[in-house]
Simulated scan of single mutants.
Amino acid sequence: MLTKFSITHLPARFRFLLFFLFFFASRLALYAQSPAANIDGQSSFTAKLINIEAATSETFRYNTTLHNGSGKPAVFEFKANLPIGWMISYKVDGNQVTSLNMDAGTTRDVSIEVNAAASTAPGKYKLPLKAIANADTLSLNLEAVVKGSYGITLTTPTGKLSEELTSGSHKEIHLEVKNSGTLPLNDIELSSQLPSNWEATFEPVKIKQLEPGKTLAITAKLKVPDKTIAGDYAATFTATNSNGNSQAAFRMVVTTSLLSGWIGILVILAAISLVYYLIRKYGRR
């Protein structure tokens, strides 16, 4: 038959031994977590991934760890030897820094963001970094593989960005989407920003893929509402995908239709005739 066990049933010497073992184990765990436990004289600057591939216009992001293994606090200053035109930033807890003050035995995560120059050719580039504290210099050699660039351009076949329309009419506007980069563009969508009540549809509506250097013709079918007041209007067409966008801003000149003009003239003539008739009939009285 099983009986309920209690530590109070043990002899006093065994209870003291268990208490001592528990106290020793807890102190050992606290020591292992304390900075002093990490003072081994071996400071380090490491990265989870040292080689990252991205396009020229994208940011290379590296997750690194800086460890101060010395027995005293230290201020580590970050240095980098990058290709001309490249930019780098260091972030700790979301804040941008150029140096880091660290207590003895501590470890900090450092996020590093690198941006290549716009004119960078595809290839592999070495990024030597250093964290320097007094006589202690920690080196970290990263690599950035530039796979090319994304570029998208929206324009017209002739370069003309103005059109004349009449109130209540339909107009086809011819556009061109060009891949001006060195990487394929996928899922390009067309959109428009128009005056109130104007409408536009595109043919094709979406471009599945456009290879580098290629150009695709787009037709925008524009509808101008009836009774639109004559004047100048702005219309913007946009080609967008996940890697960028391009806009074509048009000046739209709306005129009244020929029929509306003749109707206006007839109304004016009728008004003049009515005035003349009234003068002839009642003017002598």
Rank of each mutant, 00 (worst) to 15 (best):
G181P: 11
Q96F: 12
K171V: 02
T98H: 07
N63T: 14
Y125D: 09
I84K: 10
E172P: 07
E176H: 08
S167K: 00
A135L: 14
L165S: 07
V97H: 03
L142P: 00
N51E: 15
N68A: 00
N115F: 09
E163L: 13
K124H: 09
V97K: 05
K48S: 12
F60C: 07
N81F: 05
A80R: 01
A47D: 03
T156Q: 06
I152V: 11
K147E: 06
Y90L: 09
D187F: 10
L165N: 02
G151K: 10
T158W: 08
E113C: 12
K79P: 05
G148S: 00
T120N: 02
F45T: 12
I84V: 11
A131C: 03
S162P: 10
L154A: 00
G148T: 01
S99C: 04
T64G: 01
G148N: 02
N101L: 12
K178Q: 13
K178W: 02
K178I: 07
T65E: 14
I112K: 10
V110Q: 06
I112Y: 08
M87W: 13
N68T: 04
V145P: 03
D93R: 14
V110T: 07
I84N: 10
T107L: 09
T64N: 00
E58G: 01
V146C: 08
K126S: 15
F45R: 14
T98P: 05
A47C: 05
L142A: 05
T156V: 07
I112P: 05
L161M: 12
T106A: 04
F76A: 07
S57Q: 15
N68I: 01
K48A: 12
K147A: 03
A121T: 02
H174I: 15
T182A: 00
N63M: 15
A117K: 00
G94V: 08
G105C: 04
A118T: 06
S162N: 14
T166E: 08
A55T: 03
T65Q: 12
A116Y: 03
T166I: 08
N68E: 02
T182S: 06
G151P: 07
H174P: 08
H67C: 14
L66C: 05
A118F: 09
H170W: 07
S57A: 13
L127G: 06
V177D: 04
I173K: 02
S162M: 13
V110D: 04
V114T: 07
V114D: 08
N95H: 13
N63C: 14
S99T: 07
I152H: 06
A116I: 02
K79T: 12
T106L: 05
Y90W: 14
G168D: 01
H170L: 11
N63L: 15
T155V: 09
A47P: 05
D187I: 10
S162I: 11
Y62D: 11
G71L: 05
